[in-house]
Design a protein around this nucleic acid. Structure first.
Lengths: 346, 346
DNA sequence: TTGTAAGCGTTATCAA
DNA sequence: TTGATAACGCTTACAA
């Protein structure tokens, strides 16, 4: 009610104990007699005490803060990842200071400075502007997710396996030719595995394939235009052949699907389509679209487990041996929906 | 490099100033001679000083923390709102401690306790489980967004206006009958305005209408089933009439659209559809769908402005007069896409 | 323009 | 089982 905050001192005076004993009540209650515990418990109620973690932090150095740098929350993938990370509060108790970097490298460095000023115990980085080498130099526990990770611990989807799964499914649909549409992902990035998985699977099955790696533009409209063109190109080049198309993500898959449905009134029998990510759009599409689902909950959970382990390590050892980065990989899950039906042939 | 942190004391010794002078260098540099400023600046570099905000907070009580309680990040609306709120860091400098409540009232109370323990200066609440009366009782600056807000300051979309805009657009499409599909939103909730806006507009234009308020279920599949049924019902009841359908949100609108397109190969000429929210799905739909866009950036910005004003107020006056809650309303924007074409009639 | 010293609300270290 | 006292790193009167 009144303005002043109730402190251990107030409680101590009220109960005729010392500050120390009050502190013990919270941190090591068993060292007090049961009776005294009750006295203090009652005093807390009488005085309406609220704990002050800032003071606690200053005294013991443990903030229980984890910093998060996320590229944006526009893409469902990041939003859901953040959701899962935040949910880990129930399990580990760490609080999250969140920054959205929006691909601004300078801003990102400022955010990191700010986070460090708050003595965060660790950091989860999803943005991809700052090299892992620099991240590692900050010298605090860091886990990166689905990005370049040479010098940091990381959790990634097994993109290669995802590529294999998607391509294999198309192959089972008795396609005559397989096509992969993607941008030219650099080798250091986890998502590059999707391309390799596609290639290896096609070669293994000795099936004709085409790899379409090109910049599809930066806006939704650009993407759409590029995919419409691509659709025309494929329609001409592979007329009458059953085309199995593996797109880099569900957004692209949906654009292609929409173009075809608007053109033909439905998805023509000689098309099979699969995307990647299991974003909402894959399920909400006019024809529910097959996709490769990243196990976002597992990725988030694994990331926090690695981070917590490293943070605990810090609290123990004096000579904080950094230890070499650990890289974990999470298997994706094939989601078979209506765009990859196996044809009923004789 | 080494483990120990550099403090003002170290800098003071290094420069032969006092701690106070070092503090002044940061908080009121003009009170130092230029020469001395340079000396200290150099010392900061030499010693590789990193600021410690926790100590600062303890000393001056200002955390620059704002707590956010968000229902989830699955819905794009919340994700984008969070994105915009986080972006306000550049403008106001407040850091955000974020919790996802997932409709768990007990958890939400725990989160709030935790936030208060960190001396957050204010709070933005998007979740809707805890009554505004209780929120107000926490006695710190709070702004709620798009939820029951009797006892708290708030920012909401002008839902009534949105309902009017959507309905008017359908009316302009020369529809014979207007239909609004929604759940039975209680009166205290801002979204109720959409229903009222629909009703008033229909009555004003003296056009036949039907209000379909019913629980559409809790899962995506349930919703889909319910909307498929509804589509059949409308098709029978209003055969040959041009039906203008205003759905409570873009997800519903997309489901209805998909059902119709799968049935007829395209959107039949006697249908006009509009949703609400301008979620990504409305633009990604097989036929880009008209909708009413909430100005999420403006809402977030306004919320932060109100909050910052209240937080500043706190820092000034001793007898922190709470002041009565302020309610701001943001006009939505009509987004006219392909599902509300004006028919080319004679 | 600069310094001294008393906080801020805990925890940690020693003693008792 | 309990208490005195010194940190923790900075801010803020009050002095000089």
């Amino acid at each position: 009610m009144n303005g002043k905050k109730v402190t251990f001192d107030d409680i101590a005076k009220y109960t005729n104990f010392s500050k120390t004993t009050i502190s013990r009540y919270f941190n090591n209650p068993d060292s007090l007699t049961l009776k005294n515990q009750e006295i203090i418990a009652q005093a807390l109620i009488d005085l309406d005490y609220r704990e002050n973690k800032v003071a606690k932090i200053l005294a013991n150095g443990k903030t229980e803060f984890v910093g998060i740098i996320i590229p944006n929350l526009y893409l469902h993938y990041y939003a859901e990842m953040l959701n899962q990370i935040l949910s880990s509060y129930e399990k580990f108790g760490y609080k999250f200071l969140v920054f959205a970097a929006n691909d601004n490298e300078a801003a990102e460095r400022r955010y990191i400075r700010e986070l460090l000023a708050y003595n965060i115990e660790g950091m989860i980085v999803l943005s991809h502007t700052i090299p892992s080498r620099e991240l590692a130099s900050y010298n605090i526990p860091i886990v990166t997710i689905e990005r370049e990770d040479q010098y940091t611990s990381s959790v990634n989807t097994d993109n290669y396996m995802g590529g294999v799964q998607a391509t294999s499914l198309l192959y089972k649909c008795a396609c005559d030719v397989l096509i992969h549409i993607n941008v030219d992902v650099p080798k250091g990035i986890p998502a590059h595995g999707r391309i390799q998985g596609f290639l290896d699977t096609c070669r293994e099955h000795r099936i004709p394939y085409e790899l379409l790696l090109k910049d599809l533009g930066n806006t939704y409209a650009d993407n759409q235009r590029a995919l419409l063109e691509t659709a025309g190109y494929l329609e001409r080049k592979y007329e009458k052949k059953r085309k199995g198309i593996f797109l880099a993500n569900d957004t692209y898959a949906n654009m292609l699907l929409n173009a075809l449905v608007r053109l033909h009134g439905s998805l023509p029998e000689d098309y099979r389509i699969i995307g990647f990510d299991n974003s909402p759009i894959s399920g909400e599409a006019v024809i529910p679209t097959s996709t490769v689902g990243q196990q976002i909950d597992k990725i988030a959970d694994t990331a926090m487990e690695i981070l917590v382990a490293q943070m605990n390590e810090r609290k123990k050892r004096r000579p904080s041996v950094p230890g070499s980065p650990v890289h974990r990989v999470i298997t994706p899950v094939l989601i078979n929906r209506d765009t990859t039906r196996i044809p009923a042939e004789i």
